[in-house]
Each structure stands twice: as structure tokens, then as C-alpha cells.
Simulated assay, not measured.
Amino acid sequence: MTEIANKLEQLLNTGFFYLSKCSEADLRSKSSPEKWSKKEVLGHLIDSAINNLQRFTEIQFEDQPYSYRKYNQNALVDANDYNNAETKDIIDFWMAINKRIISLIQQQTETTLSYKIQVDENEVIDLRFLMVDYVDHLEHHLNQIIQ
């Protein structure tokens, strides 16, 4: 999992560099009313980090298979009003929570990476898949911000 932790760290560095150089107007701008701004996409990545940090942590001590809880992405972005939040605060929070996630990824063993996660009645994944998927998801949305 060292490769995944390193990839996440590189994505954070890329994101931090880009976001630090953007104007507030660029970060808050929306291509249409129903689309997220760059700040809202970043907010979505924060919400994803919060939920996944909880999953990555709880699976260490909850009964197996761990029960995967979904969350309402749009409602969380709206409720947190990321577009009007202090940019520095949300960038710092995004960086900090992902550094914690990197630490968790680095702590995993082959045993813990094989812990089962019940996504729904027909789908079971493992912690390794969830961690890799988290980093891929972050990369996808970071690319949306940077383009």
C-alpha cells in the first residue's frame, strides 16, 4: 500500500499547489447553477475524506463484514456551504484529514487489507479495494478542479 499512500501524497501536493494559486472568483465560479464550483468539489472531497476516514478506522474494530454506510453527497455539500467557506480553512482541512488517511493506509497489514466490507446485499469488497478506490475518486475530482 506504499504506492497508494505515495500517490495520495502526490495528489495532495498537486492540489495544494493549484488551489493556493487560484483566485477566489475562479474557485467559486459555476459553469451552471446545478454544477459544483471548484470549492464545492473540494468540499465534496472533504466529505468523502470524513466518511472514509471513519470507515477505514471503524473496520479495525467492528464486526466483520463491516457494513458500508452511504451518504448524501449533494446534501452534505449544500449543508456545509463550501462555496462561502474560507478557502484557506477548507484547503487546510482537506490536507490535514488526508494526511491522517495516508497514515492509516501506511499502518495496514495484509490481514487488515483483506477485511470484508458489505456494500449492499450483493456486493462485498475488502479494505484494500476501498482504500484504492478512495484515492482514485480523489484523483478524478482533483482533475475536475484543475482542468
Rank of each mutant, 00 (worst) to 15 (best):
I46S: 03
I46D: 02
N51W: 01
N51R: 00
N52T: 10
L53P: 02
L53W: 12
R55T: 03
R55P: 02
R55S: 03
F56D: 03
E62T: 07
E62N: 04
D63V: 05
D63L: 06
Q64N: 08
Q64I: 11
P65W: 00
S67F: 09
Y68L: 09
K70P: 06
N74H: 10
A75K: 15
V77Y: 05
D78G: 04
A79S: 15
N80T: 05
D81V: 03
A85I: 04
A85N: 04
D89Y: 06
D89P: 00
I90C: 01
I90Q: 04
K99G: 04
K99D: 05
R100T: 12
R100A: 09
I101P: 06
I101K: 04
I101F: 08
I102H: 08
I102W: 06
L104E: 14
I105E: 03
Q106A: 12
Q107E: 13
Q107A: 14
Q108H: 04
Q108N: 13
T109A: 09
E110Q: 14
T111Q: 12
T112G: 07
L113P: 00
S114E: 05
S114R: 08
S114K: 13
Y115M: 11
Q118D: 02
V119P: 00
N122Q: 11
N122H: 07
V124G: 02
I125Y: 06
D126V: 08
L127N: 04
L127E: 02
F129T: 10
D133Q: 15
D133P: 01
E139L: 08
